[in-house]
Design a protein around this nucleic acid. Structure first.
Length: 475
RNA sequence: GGCCCGUUCGUCUAUCGGUUAGGACACCAGGUUUUCAACCUGGGAAGAGGGGUUCGACUCCCCUACGGGCUGCCA
């Protein structure tokens, strides 16, 4: 017989959600919030749901919804089931508001917006902080006129509400600071505070992981859970991301939208890694895969202070992921990057040469623009455009070296060893260090002096093209 | 104004009463090298300030300062 002390209710399967409002692009902070929810659910065999909070008809647009989905998809975050539109659930929200009125936990308020605005203005003019108290809270139902009404919560006015937050700890809110917030507007539409609770409950959300700008809201929302007798989810309010100067991240800091980062050429795996690591730690782990992160990710590892974006570290992390990426996947992502940044796509020939040279390129680049720059030798057609340093490397002596090399290359074994034998012999016969030989070769082959290894370049573009470029440069 | 949250190297963080306060990025110096990148070695660099509690505080409590959030018929 089981020890009753050890008998626990079966753990509810984890259900998390990301619930952005479609008023613009996917903010990098929102992307990280989504990522945390995704990691938490995926690491526990749970479900990760997506809901669009589009109850504000003035500001919500389908374009914004599409941008958010694109951003999530680029980040590699997949969600379960259909995307839920909060707006489409408005009847259900109204139904719950009315149910609360019937239960006595909410009431109809007939005060008009004009009355409330006038009250606020008067209070402020009198130097007081305006806190509107509806006169309808304690009115007899029979005295209600037949007029438009909003539904307000009948907020508890004594005692305290405790938010047991998995990140912030135990947060106590004195109920006297809670107001009778409106849950259903006079036009019958729900407010955020109501909709979010009803939807989270109906969708079976067990863990609400969101920005800590909602920490205070959790107290108000818990009021709705209590009013309906619903089980309160686990709260986890995570700090927002700040700019390098410590201020809330905004446009003036540069890229704030997830899609901007794609256009800047950061690989998604590196972005996920960096974003995961921003404000969360697992010991000394710095570079890891999403699969590893899923196994490690835990709410208790989330820091309580806002983190600043550090582009240098982002690049560094991206470099590691770029280097370890699968060639085919990297090429695929590069193609998407070109499209996202409005650049022409690769020709078939460029694609083939790039694929052949990836082994020598991917561990030298941190971002796609950098990869492309290093891959210049494989992408260009003759004539090879020279930059100033490349031209400087092609003096008369250097051109003589290239001329002497050409016939030897025609008969060379086109392997690293074969090429090395020829180049080293040429260098030593002239009493030069190999570096003196490599510089003009780089210039001739890539039109640049900073390039991958000369051997790798020659192997990738092949004998004919190598000789042609040397001829061109030594004329 | 009221309420709530936060504060360890420049940055991201580890530490969960006892450590020479560790790692990573960045930076500096040296090494390696075929340029760049990478890599190797070394270096400087931190508990916001003030009170407590304790044999002992980065760690627990209080105050202050600074930063952030909420306070809407926005989300």
């Amino acid at each position: 017989m089981a020890d009753p002390q050890s008998a626990r209710p079966p753990a509810r399967p984890v259900v998390t959600r990301f619930a952005p409002s479609p008023t613009g692009y996917l903010h990098i902070g929102g992307g990280r919030t989504a990522l945390f929810n995704w990691l938490y659910a995926r690491g526990r065999g749970g479900r990760f749901l997506l809901r669009i909070e589009d109850t504000d008809r003035e500001r919500s647009t389908p374009e914004a919804t599409a941008a958010i989905l694109r951003g999530l998809t680029w980040l590699g975050l997949d969600w379960d089931g259909e995307v839920v539109s909060q707006f489409e659930r408005r009847d259900r929200h109204a139904e719950v508001a009315l149910a609360m009125v019937a239960r006595g936990t909410a009431y109809k308020c007939f005060s008009t917006q004009e009355e409330i605005a006038a009250f606020r203005a008067a209070e402020e003019a009198a130097g007081r902080y305006p806190v509107f108290r509806s006169p309808w809270r304690d009115a007899e139902p029979a005295t209600h006129p037949d007029a438009p009404f909003a539904i307000r919560m009948r907020a508890p006015q004594t005692g305290e509400t405790v938010i047991d937050d998995a990140v912030q700890g135990r947060v106590v809110i004195r109920n006297e600071t809670l107001d009778d917030m409106i849950v259903l507007r006079s036009d019958g539409t729900p407010t955020y505070m109501l909709a979010v609770v009803v939807d989270d409950h109906d969708m079976g959300v067990t863990h609400v992981i969101r920005g800590d700008d909602h920490l205070n809201n959790a107290g108000r929302q818990q009021m709705v859970y209590d009013a309906m007798g619903w089980e309160v989810p686990v709260w986890a309010h995570i700090p927002l991301i700040h700019g390098p100067d410590g201020k809330k991240l905004s446009k003036r800091h540069g890229a704030v939208g997830v899609e901007e980062y794609q256009a800047l050429g950061y690989p998604a795996a590196g972005m996920r890694n960096y974003l995961t690591r921003l404000g969360w730690a697992h010991g000394d782990a710095e570079v890891f895969t999403s699969e590893e992160a899923m196994g490690w990710f835990d709410l208790s590892g989330i820091g309580r202070a806002p983190a600043r974006l550090d582009f240098k570290k982002l690049e560094n992390i991206c470099g590691h992921h770029m280097a370890s990426a699968d060639d085919a996947a990297l090429l695929h992502e590069l193609t998407a990057y070109l499209a996202a940044s409005g650049q022409p796509s690769l020709t078939e020939g460029q694609r083939t040469r790039l694929k052949a040279g990836l082994y020598a390129l991917k561990d030298r680049a941190k971002t796609f623009p950098e990869l492309l720059e290093k891959a210049r030798f494989a992408l260009i057609e003759r004539p090879v455009g020279m930059d100033a340093t490349a031209q400087a490397a092609l003096d008369a002596v250097s051109r003589g070296i290239l001329k002497a090399l050409t016939p030897q290359l025609r008969d060379a074994h086109w392997t690293r060893d074969g090429l090395e034998a020829i180049l080293m012999a040429e260098a030593s016969s002239r009493g030069l260090g190999f570096g003196k030989l490599a510089a003009p070769l780089r210039a001739a082959l890539a039109g640049r002096t900073a390039t991958p290894s000369v051997y790798d370049m020659m192997l990738v573009i092949g004998r004919e093209e190598t000789i042609a470029r040397l001829d061109e440069a030594s004329d």
